[in-house]
Write a protein that binds this DNA or RNA. Structure first.
Length: 931
RNA sequence: GCCGGAGUGGCGAAAUGGCAGACGCGAUUGACUCAAAAUCAAUUGUCCGCAAGGGCGUGUGGGUUCGACUCCCACCUCCGGCACCA
């Protein structure tokens, strides 16, 4: 009898062996095709969780598959190590962010190794290492020197109490989550990158194999719109520029709206309106952008008292401010056309402003501004619009619309505006008023000018010996040894204290992986010439617009600054066309879903004590069986009996079957009885109900992969994650269903370690196994190509079933048995690398299975001679007949009409129509009889 | 609110417009066992029926088609993102 399958032993053994042999060391080899597989790098938050496994192990399986397909594969890993949580740890637990981060990295490295993934650890990159952020700073510098970085103003979440800028996640309902004090929006001078500079190029996805939804979301995020900029003037002569996609409706502009933060507001406001305007501006400062732009909200706004002149008809129109106009979109001001824009319409109705219809819809009574019920933005004919009257408005965007076309020509002719393109996309705000990020290599001189830090002084290093104040304010702003420096002339100067957005670090980490120790440049051009671009990038769809757009922008910016020039030359020297090679960072992109926490029932308790109103002060709480609840209710009518839906310390929210939850406070020294937990019990052991939701430590629903690996082994955990979910979707964790995968691998182990069969074999069964083998090769290959890991494993399990039956019935010769195992282990190798390697060795095949070629699919061997012809009545299956696989239409229709099933419902009548569907791609042929 | 996605047995899920539910979990019955676990065999969408067979079934309502989980329109619910969480 063979040994039992003990993954813990064999996995440790092979991981060590692969490591010793450098099996996954990826090296430039121009004689072989390359494949750069990349999975989003983790933030070192503490422990690896099951979500990391779900993201990484299928990506690893895919990378291993590509390797067996003959590619030279690079699959690196690293850490996105700057960020807010490290600073929170510093403030809350008095641990230095660096200490906290590196301790986490150390722990996570070990956990990552237990996956048995083919990570090439010699390429590990960590974004908070000075050798890494030196180049993050260097990139900032070249952006600055080439006018891609500039200083501008942007709103921040300002806590007047803490005198600190807060992250969006630290602000809840307009208040600081820690102190509960109000937070206001405040303008601050900060650093930006010219994100819009590449807006048009980023709209071109023609070279990329990316998910359609991601492309659509990026398109919408960039939000390109064509129209015109038109300059209105106040009565005092101050110009107010607006952007509009509908310059044809300018005759219908009956008022203007400025963003409350618009610089002109203070100047034009009349004394009579000043108090109202100030109050409104202050109120808007407390609103989030999401609130401001929500279209279902009641419109608010205040009249400034000032008037503007409509440049096309000299109409005197009032200027208002309102929160639905954003200072950072367009020009921060709009011409309001209430007859054509629903938001303007609602605003006009609420404040009694004039409405002039300018587009008359077809076949409808003439619109009247006084009685219109909604704005009309569809097609029609121009009215009330001077020279545009009678022109068609066809509802299309830009110049394709005759009325827009004519309007642009007209306003350009009379010189009040110009054709223009606007983007929803805003420039990239990279400033963070924080400590734990890459410093910005700029110096503020005494005379108010700025200069860059010279290259030979990079990186500007984050000081270690700083103290953190409980306010969360960045120590860089008050730590003198960092703050005080000199400029290039040696005069006293101050360092820039903002640090960079961590998206900056993650925009180029795939380049640092190429050569993490390279000192002369951000990456070794030889490595870049060979490995770039990334061939397959995998990660969560939650990064669709932000990270993925930033990294595309970054790539284009550094390409234009010549950063890839050396790599381009080297690629060309190796006969590789460099045309467009560096235009996009990642050619193929695929998303995985999220693993959510498992649903769990809470304990059912019987609680007795002193009732006080609706609340119960319990001195006795006992956990009982779920099905005993009814009996307990009858036995103890004074008690609260029900499931614990929520527990916060000693406060329980219990569902007793009534409409609302009951609150129970378990008093100090109360008796708590939990039969399933031996010994004395306390209130903290009571389990609350858990919904299906994202895993987080505070919810207590985190699944720890370490425990699963210790119990089942890495191969089983890998295979379960790939088998149990649709990878692109994810879903709630289920701890029960893993047993199917456990059984699968136990079966494989038993088959692989059994004594070879001694029988002569049954040629028919052996042929059938060969057929199934090749069908499996096809399915596994297709699954790997399309990231459908669950169907891949389903096919392997189905083959296991066939193989098991054949072996049980003693129908296989030793030769057929070995051939089947040989191919099957190769197909399993990417998914379950350890058990495949172990059995491969035990069967006497040459080390390493991971260096073998992928099995070749043979269509002839996969083919069967006979197949089932499905007979349908009006599209519903009613019977079958056996026919040759390559049956032609005529023969199939004849066979179908002659079948018992057809005779039964036809009753000798003639069918209305007969449709033959030939069998394709392993599907049965069908004949549909229409009656 | 806006943008994107999803909704299929008791559960995880599968299905280039062509037999809905492959592959698993669970459950039920039987075998082995003193017994349990493990394992093995069989059944398992649902309703009617002893059966043969038939009706109904992919969130809801409509449509296109010989044929719709799949395509189109409207709606409902849930999930992701919304620019300082990463």
């Amino acid at each position: 009898m063979a040994d039992k399958y003990t993954p813990q032993t064999i996995e440790a053994k092979w991981q060590q062996r692969w490591d010793d042999d450098g099996l996954y060391r990826s090296r430039v080899d121009w004689s072989r095709p390359k494949h750069y597989a990349l999975t989003m790098l983790p933030y070192p938050s503490g422990d690896l969780h099951i979500g990391h496994w779900f993201a990484m192990t299928p990506s690893d399986a895919r990378a291993r598959y590509m390797r067996m397909k003959g590619f030279n594969v690079m699959f690196p890993m690293g850490f996105d190590a700057f960020g807010l949580p490290a600073e929170n740890a510093a403030v809350q637990r008095n641990i230095h962010p660096k200490t906290w981060t590196y301790a986490n990295i150390e722990r996570m490295r070990k956990q990552l190794r237990s996956m048995g993934a083919m990570f090439d650890w010699t390429r590990e990159a960590i974004s908070c290492e000075p050798s890494y952020y030196k180049w993050t700073e260097w990139f900032f510098k070249i952006f600055y020197e080439n006018d891609l970085a500039y200083r501008g103003e942007a709103l921040v979440n300002w806590s007047p109490t803490l005198q600190t800028v807060l992250a969006n996640e630290q602000v809840i309902d307009g208040k600081d989550e820690r102190t509960g004090q109000p937070v206001v929006q405040k303008l601050m001078t900060q650093w930006f990158f010219r994100y819009r500079h590449y807006a048009d190029e980023m709209l071109d996805f023609s070279k990329m194999d990316w998910p359609e939804p991601v492309k659509i979301m990026q398109e919408n995020w960039i939000g390109r719109s064509e129209g015109a900029r038109i300059v209105f003037k106040t009565e005092a002569g101050d110009p107010i520029e607006v952007f509009t996609t509908r310059p044809d409706t300018v005759w219908g502009a009956t008022f203007m709206v400025l963003a409350p933060e618009h610089p002109l507001v203070e100047k034009i406001t009349t004394d009579a309106q000043r108090a109202d305007i100030h109050a409104y501006v202050e109120r808007v400062a407390r609103e989030t952008e999401l609130e401001r732009t929500a279209e279902d909200r009641e419109k608010t706004g205040v009249f400034t008292g000032a008037f503007a002149v409509n440049p096309v008809n000299d109409a005197r129109i009032p200027i208002w401010i309102a929160d639905y106009v954003l200072v950072n979109y367009g020009t921060g001001a709009i011409m309001a056309v209430p007859s054509g824009d629903q938001r303007d319409f609602e605003f006009a109705r609420k404040f009694g402003l004039e409405i002039i219809p300018v587009v008359q819809p077809d076949d409808q009574p003439l619109l009247d501004g006084a009685t219109m019920e909604a704005a009309w933005d569809g097609a029609g004919t121009m009215i009330n619009s001077g020279p545009l009257n009678g022109i068609r408005a066809n509802g299309e965007k830009g110049r394709k619309n005759p009325s827009v076309d004519a309007a642009i020509d007209y306003i350009e002719e009379i010189m009040v505006g110009k054709e223009a393109v606007n983007y929803r996309l805003r420039d990239w705000l990279i400033s963070r008023q924080r400590y734990w990020g890459s410093p910005i290599p700029m110096v503020h001189c005494e005379d108010g000018t700025m200069e860059t830090v010279p290259d030979d002084q990079l990186p500007v290093v984050l000081p270690d010996d700083v103290e953190f104040m409980p306010t969360g304010r960045s120590p860089l702003t008050y730590y003198a040894p960092f703050l005080n420096t000199v400029d290039r002339e040696g005069r006293p100067a101050k360092r820039e204290t903002d640090t960079m957005d961590t998206f900056m670090c993650s925009s180029w980490y795939h380049l640092r992986y190429l050569s993490p120790k390279y000192a002369a440049a951000p990456f070794d051009p030889e490595e870049a010439a060979y490995w770039l671009p990334v061939d397959t990038y995998t990660g969560g769809a939650e990064h669709a617009t932000m990270h993925l757009l930033y990294t595309r922008w970054f790539n284009k910016a550094i390409r234009d600054l010549g950063v890839f020039d050396d790599a381009r030359t080297i690629a060309a020297a190796h006969g590789r066309s460099a045309d467009g090679l560096f235009d996009e960072p990642m050619m193929q992109m695929r998303n995985q879903g999220q693993i959510l926490g498992e649903e769990r029932e809470g304990d059912v308790v019987v609680a007795t004590g002193r009732a006080d109103g609706a609340k119960l002060f319990a001195d006795y709480v006992e956990v009982i069986d779920r099905d005993q609840a009814e009996a307990a209710r009858q036995q103890k009518p004074d008690a609260i009996v029900g499931q614990i839906m929520k527990r916060t310390e000693n406060l329980l929210q219990v569902d007793d079957g009534g409409d609302t939850l009951r609150t129970i406070e378990v008093v100090q020294g109360a008796t708590v009885v939990i039969p399933s937990i031996p010994g004395a019990n306390n209130v903290n052991q009571l389990r609350q109900h858990l919904d299906i939701q994202r895993m987080s430590k505070s919810k207590g629903n985190v699944v720890n992969p370490d425990e699963l690996v210790a119990q089942y082994g890495a191969d089983t955990v890998r295979a379960y994650l790939m088998f149990g979910f649709d990878w692109s979707k994810g879903g709630p964790w289920n701890s029960q269903q893993i047993s199917g995968v456990v059984r699968w691998l136990n079966d494989i182990w038993e088959i692989g370690t059994a004594e070879p069969p001694t029988g002569a074999g049954d040629p028919e069964v052996e042929r059938e196994i060969e057929r199934r083998m090749h069908q499996t090769i096809a399915k596994v290959g297709e699954g790997m190509e399309s990231f459908s890991f669950n169907t891949t494993i389903a096919a392997l399990m189905a083959f296991r079933n066939d193989l098991k039956t054949a072996i049980r019935d003693d129908k296989l010769s030793e030769r057929a048995w070995r051939a089947a195992l040989h191919e099957m282990l190769l197909l399993m190798a990417p998914i379950t690398p350890h058990i495949a390697e172990e059995l491969w060795e035990q069967l006497g095949f040459a080390y390493s299975i991971h260096e073998q070629a992928w099995p070749v699919y043979d269509a002839d061997k996969a083919k069967s001679e006979m197949t089932t012809l499905v007979i349908m009545k009006n599209g519903k299956p009613v019977g079958h007949v056996e026919v040759p696989v390559d049956i032609e239409a005529e023969a199939a229709q004849e066979a179908a009409l002659a079948s018992d099933a057809a005779k039964r419902f036809l009753n000798g009548d003639k069918p209305k129509k007969v449709v033959f569907v030939p069998g394709r791609n392993g599907m049965e042929p069908k004949v549909n009889i229409v009656v």
